[in-house]
């Protein structure tokens, strides 16, 4: 048979072209979209924030590298998922916390959140949230010490949600505006107590808008999540019904970061758009319940983890209608 210059041609299955989209590209894009929020935090809470972020990323990458080497698997560090997990863990610890805290959080996130399940694609729970929940359970004091914004010496500035909750539970019948000294503008720009990443809502939304524009995340989960929290807060959070300060609930705490960057995680969320809507509503309801009546001021991480567990169930029952099946 005649061959071109004696070389065997390659035969593989169609399609013979590819969109060029890769897991690596997606992970690094999400990473860069998260960076503005980090820069804002460095500005608001001081340079020590940068070291926390770096130590968390180092922890994640080192853990992943060690695990791949021990398991004799191909190195997956460069796919960016470990770096992203590290960054998200850093965004979930308070500013001014010791460097080892973030490092340990990342270690747990990668090892117990990802590697033990078989690596990227096989984990059930969001690794970064596993890291955060581990830290919350093990070091509750360190994890709830909030420095005041723009004033690194004052170490005890409670988060808006905590103020709101305490004020409410003491039956202090003050309106939200009077009770909290934060304006919506401060909340929006990030001048308030809180974890590193969740501070600046504006930066988070800008990054998320880019991701949605690039279709790296879909709007379904964040929209249904935030809307549900807002409705829940409006109905139940005020005196009586239907006069809760829902804007405060949206802008404070980790809701924006959770809704756009954690609940939208491909691996641990539902795969269909309809499933994502259900997932978001479930997250919203659980967040609302924890925030208003639970033991913690914040419920985003637990609500997402609980809904992660429900993901296989949602995927099983929410499937698209097959073409030609009337």
């Amino acid at each position: 048979m005649s061959k071109i210059a004696g070389i065997n041609l390659k035969v593989s299955s169609s399609p013979h072209i590819h969109s060029g989209e890769t897991t690596t590209k997606i992970m690094w894009t999400v990473f860069f979209c998260l960076l503005p929020s980090g820069f804002m935090s460095i500005y608001i809470f001081g340079l020590s924030t940068l070291w926390i972020i770096l130590s968390a990323i180092l922890g994640a990458v080192a853990t992943e590298w060690c695990c791949c080497t021990v398991q004799k698997k191909a190195l997956t560090v460069s796919d960016g998922s470990a770096v992203l997990t590290g960054l998200l863990v850093a965004y979930n610890v308070p500013p001014q916390s010791p460097l080892w805290l973030a490092f340990l959080g990342s270690f747990v996130a990668i090892l117990f959140g990802k590697i033990v399940f078989g690596g990227l694609g096989f984990n059930i729970f969001n690794p970064a949230l596993i890291g955060r929940v581990f830290l919350m359970a093990s070091f509750p004091v360190l994890m709830t010490r909030w420095p005041a914004p723009l004033n690194v010496d004052a170490v005890t500035a409670p988060t808006p949600l905590a103020i709101f909750k305490d004020g409410f539970s003491q039956n202090n019948m003050l309106s939200a505006g009077e009770m909290i000294n934060f304006s919506y503008r401060d909340l929006f720009l990030g001048f308030r107590g809180g974890c590193i990443g969740e501070a600046c809502v504006l930066a988070l939304i800008l990054g998320a808008a880019f991701l949605i524009y690039k279709k790296y995340i879909s709007w379904h989960t964040p929209l249904s999540y935030i809307t549900t929290v807002a409705v829940f807060a409006w109905v139940f959070a005020g005196e009586g019904f239907f006069n809760g300060d829902f804007l405060m609930h949206i802008l404070s705490g980790g809701l924006i970061m959770g809704a756009f960057y954690m609940a939208t995680d491909y691996v641990t969320g539902p795969i269909t758009k309809k499933g994502q809507l259900i997932f978001g509503i479930g997250c919203g309801i659980i967040t609302g319940i924890i925030r208003l009546w639970g033991g913690y001021p914040e419920g985003v991480s637990y609500s997402i983890l609980i809904m992660n567990a429900a993901t296989p169930l949602i995927d099983r029952f929410v499937v698209p209608k097959r073409f030609g099946n009337m």
């Binding site: 013979h16 072209i17 590819h18 989209e21 897991t23 997606i26 796919d79 078989g118 690596g119 990227l120 694609g121 096989f122 879909s218 491909y266 691996v267 969320g269 795969i271 269909t272 758009k273 499937v319 698209p320 209608k321 097959r322 073409f323 030609g324």
Partner: peptide, 23 residues
């Protein structure tokens, strides 16, 4: 294409594009 096959990350793109609405 130099294909480097990795585990599915469940991004859902295949479901979005499938003209037969399969999984």
């Amino acid at each position: 294409e130099k294909k480097n096959e990795q585990p599915c990350i469940r991004c859902g793109r295949c479901i979005d594009v499938c003209p037969m609405n399969m999984l």
